[in-house]
Amino acid sequence: MRQIRLAGLAAGAATLALALSGCSLGDSPEDFDRTPKTVGTDLKAADTSGLQLPLIVEPLELVEPGWDLPVQSAGSIFLSAQTGGETLTYSAVDTKGTELWRAKRPSGCTGFTVTADGDTPLAVLTDSESSTDCDDDVTATAYDLKTGKKTWGPVDVPGPLRGPGTAFAPEDAPADDAVVLDPATGEPVGDSDGGDSDGVSHLGEYQGLVLDIDGGKLVASEDGETVWEHSLADNDWDAETLTAAAGAATGEGFIHLDAGDGAGPVFDRDSGDLLDDDARGVARDANTQAVVTLGKSGITVIDDLGKNELPVSVPQSVHLEAAAGGLLYLREGGKLRVHNSTTGSLARGYRADGSGVVAIPDVFTSAGVGTLRAGDRTLLATDRVVEESGEG
Rank of each mutant, 00 (worst) to 15 (best):
Q3L: 13
A7I: 09
A11S: 15
A17G: 14
L20A: 15
S21H: 13
L25V: 14
L25G: 12
S28V: 13
S28A: 15
P29L: 12
E30V: 11
T35Y: 08
P36R: 02
T38Q: 08
G40D: 07
G40E: 05
D42H: 03
L43F: 05
L43C: 03
K44M: 07
K44H: 05
A46Q: 02
T48I: 02
L51P: 01
L53F: 04
L55C: 03
I56M: 05
V57F: 04
V57R: 00
G66C: 01
D68I: 00
S73V: 01
A74I: 00
I77D: 02
A81W: 02
G85R: 01
E86H: 01
E86D: 04
A92L: 00
V93A: 02
G97L: 00
G97E: 00
T98M: 01
L100G: 03
A103Y: 04
S107H: 05
G108A: 06
F112M: 03
T120K: 08
T120L: 12
P121H: 08
L122P: 06
T126V: 05
D127H: 11
S128Y: 12
S131E: 14
C134T: 11
D144R: 01
T147N: 06
K149T: 11
P154F: 05
P158L: 06
T166R: 06
T166E: 11
A167C: 05
A173P: 08
D176G: 11
A178Y: 10
D182G: 05
A184T: 13
G186P: 04
G186E: 07
V189D: 03
S192K: 01
S192Y: 03
S192H: 03
S201D: 10
L203H: 06
Y206H: 05
Y206G: 03
Q207C: 09
G208I: 03
L209N: 08
L209K: 07
V210C: 06
V210W: 06
L211A: 10
L211F: 10
D212S: 08
A220Y: 09
S221Q: 11
D223A: 11
G224M: 03
W228F: 11
D236N: 09
T241V: 04
G247T: 03
G251Q: 04
E252W: 04
G253E: 05
A263F: 10
V266D: 11
D268Y: 13
R269F: 14
G272F: 15
L275W: 14
L275I: 13
D276N: 14
D276G: 12
A279Y: 09
R280I: 14
G281D: 15
V291G: 15
S297Q: 10
I299G: 15
I302L: 15
D304W: 12
D304N: 14
L305K: 11
G306S: 14
V314F: 13
S317Q: 13
V318F: 14
H319R: 15
L320K: 07
A324R: 00
L330K: 02
L330P: 01
G334M: 07
K335E: 11
K335Y: 10
L336A: 08
R337V: 11
N340P: 04
S341M: 08
L346T: 07
A347D: 03
Y350W: 05
D353M: 01
V363E: 08
S366F: 07
V369F: 09
T371Q: 09
L372G: 07
D376P: 04
D376R: 04
L379I: 08
A381L: 06
T382P: 11
D383R: 10
R384K: 09
V385D: 12
S389A: 14
